[in-house]
Every structure is written in C-alpha cells, then in structure tokens.
Design a protein around this nucleic acid. Structure first.
Length: 217
DNA sequence: GACCAGGCACATC
DNA sequence: GATGTGCATGGT
C-alpha cells in the first residue's frame, strides 16, 4: 500500500468509526485563536472553563482582551493552567495583531499562508502547532496540524520515523494528501479523538480501530 | 498520589 | 545540536 493510500484508508476508518468531529469548538475565529494558545499542553475541558470566564467577563474580543492588564487576564484564564505564561503569550499575540493588522482579522486575508505562518512563529509563545492551528481552524488555510497525538499515532503505526520532527511529520501528511482544508480539519480532529480514546501513552491498543491494518503495531 | 493533558521558551552542556 | 526544566490547573 502506498503512503498516500494508507493515509486515506486510515482517514476513512477513523471517519466511519467516530464520525465528523466538528472542529474547532469555538464560536468565532478570534475565540479559536485564544483557544489555540490556551490549550497548549492542557486538557480542553480546562480551556473551556477559561474561555467561559473570558466570555462572562465580556472581554473575548481583540480590543477588550488587549486592554486588559496582566493580572486580570491571568486570573480569568487560571483554569487553563500556566496562566501567567499564557497571559503573556496572549498579550504577545495581541501586540503583534494590533501593531501590524489593527486587531482586525479581515486585514490578514491577503497575506499568503507561508508568510502568515512565519509571522505567527515570530510571536513569542506561538510555536509550530499553535501557528498551524490558527492557520487551519481560525483562518481557513490548508495547514496540517501536528501535535503529540499525531506523533504518537504516526510512530505506533509506522507512518513516520520515530525521531521525525514537526516539519517531517507535517510533510508526510501534506505531500500524500490533497491540500484540502476540510480534509485537514477533520483528519487532525480524528487523530486527536483516536489518541484520547485509544492511543494512550501506555499502549493498550488491542481494541484500536486501526489494528487490522498491515502496518499497525 | 501518580499520571496525563490538542506546547513553548530558555538554560545548560 | 541535543537534552533537561519550568510553567499550573483539573480530571482519572
């Protein structure tokens, strides 16, 4: 089986098993961006609590969030963990956003995806996964998001080399799949679902839906 | 109580 | 360049 066909087969199995995941869970693109930063190394349920705090405080807009001082912001996002560092990271993003694009997402629409990625990566606190999550799920750009689940599943099922870095893993998916925003959206979400439900750090994958594939471990 | 969760930057060697 | 560490809450 070619890598191309194998990746599509896996996608089909996951989609049939789990159905559409309806990502990203957020009401607006700006909320998606905030969630992408808050969910770094953190359970999503904790992020939801933090986002609800921001909503209840009426500050989940670029302007309001940018105007908030560090201590107030940190307290509101406390449930998401790492609240001091994440408050700084949100501020760093907002500083960049207002200095360069007037805090208006409309002003990003003519910027090429690769340049946008570079600019996002230049913001302290936004790494590869967060940048690509923002590109795909907030800005509707075709970027395949790689995270801990993608790496773990990819390694266990021999889709990628054990020591592959972010770019290599991303290339494996992007060069073997059609560059389709809807596909990238659903595929990453399905990998997260598989990771949460089956592909745990300590492998107990005997009921994993991918187990009958020739390359599975 | 240990382990894990949709990372990232920075220090040190 | 590789490896280690701090950041922190909340669920299982």
């Amino acid at each position: 089986m070619t890598m191309n066909n194998e990746l599509i087969t896996i996608y089909d199995i996951l989609y049939k098993t789990f159905g559409p995941q309806k990502w990203w869970p957020g009401e607006t693109p700006f909320e998606v961006i905030v969630g992408a930063i808050l969910t770094q190394n953190t359970n999503w349920t904790n992020v939801e609590k933090a986002i609800n705090n921001l909503k209840n405080a009426g500050v989940l807009t670029p302007e309001k969030l940018h105007a908030l001082d560090h201590t107030a912001l940190a307290q509101l996002i406390r449930p998401a963990g790492y609240f001091n560092i994440k408050a700084k990271r949100l501020k760093n993003f907002l500083d960049w956003f207002f200095e360069n694009y007037s805090g208006n997402l409309e002003n990003l629409k003519d910027i090429p995806t690769d340049r946008l990625r570079e600019e996002l990566l230049s913001v302290k606190g936004i790494g590869h996964e967060t940048a690509d999550s923002i590109l795909l799920y907030a800005l509707n750009r075709p970027a395949f998001v790689v995270d801990a689940y993608t790496a773990r599943i990819g390694t266990r099922h021999h889709l990628i080399d054990e020591c592959a870095d972010y770019h290599q893993i991303q290339e494996t998916f992007e060069s073997n799949l059609e560059s389709d925003i809807v596909l990238f959206n659903e595929y990453h979400a399905l990998l997260v679902r598989l990771g949460k439900d089956f592909c745990k750090p300590t492998p107990k994958c005997n009921i994993c839906p991918l187990n009958h594939l020739p390359h599975t471990v």
